[in-house]
Design a protein around this nucleic acid. Structure first.
Length: 205
DNA sequence: GCGACAG
DNA sequence: ATCTTGTCGC
């Protein structure tokens, strides 16, 4: 799941895209979109309150519920140990993992000899170097251990990419949605939009 | 008062 | 996240 924003003369909309992939083939099998008007501005630590609405809406459009939700943001590596990955996992009652591109909080430490982030001496995220320049922060969302989260995310990382395939595709699609008429708020043709985006996902796979 | 600060 | 000109490198 990933989000993007769109400014219209009157208001601002958040567009959430959930891309369901088959594992371990990583083939896209389904795409859903969800819209909302952000309730609050972006405030570090309160991301879930701004982005969860659209994500929740997109999730409700899923026919078969996925086995795992990968969220763009932190889970346990949060000031209150409950970032957006945790919020969504609990609210949707589904296993979830947080994959963030930047650190929010936590001190450098190690976990099983791996670079990590700790809070109260507890490992809350594993830092994974994806390129010489970039790194990602993998954390527990809900019902998945840190070790399992780390293993799964690594298995969804393709050679040249900085993000796990599900997040990579969702990120591309949420931006593409703003270019597709059928996807544009305030009155999108959701069915048509999702069909177009799924085809786009297959091209990116 | 100063630095840190997911998307 | 979004905006936004130019630039380095394959």
């Amino acid at each position: 799941m990933d989000l993007s924003y769109l400014r219209l003369t009157t208001s601002e909309y958040s567009i959430a895209v959930i891309t369901v992939l088959e594992y371990p083939s990583l083939r896209p099998v389904r795409v859903t979109v969800g819209y909302a008007e952000p309730p609050i501005p972006y405030i570090p630590g309160l991301l879930a309150f701004r982005e969860a609405p659209a994500a929740y809406t997109a999730y409700q459009r899923l026919g078969e519920k996925p086995d795992l939700l990968i969220v763009d943001g932190h889970g346990r590596s949060h000031p209150r140990k409950a970032g957006i990955a945790t919020h969504l996992g609990v609210a949707l009652d589904t296993p979830s993992i947080g994959v963030a591109k930047k650190r929010l909080t936590g001190d450098p430490c190690t976990y099983n000899n791996l670079p990590a982030l700790c809070l109260d001496d507890e490992p809350v995220a594993i830092i994974h170097q994806v390129t010489a320049k970039r790194r990602i922060y993998i954390s527990v969302g809900h019902r998945v251990s840190l070790t399992t989260a780390y293993t799964l995310v690594k298995r969804m990382l393709k050679p040249r990419r900085t993000l796990p395939q599900p997040t990579y595709i969702a990120d591309k699609l949420t931006k593409r949605a703003k270019q597709v008429d059928a996807c544009k708020p305030p009155e999108p043709d959701i069915e048509k939009c999702e069909t177009i985006l799924l085809e786009e996902a297959e091209r990116l796979a």
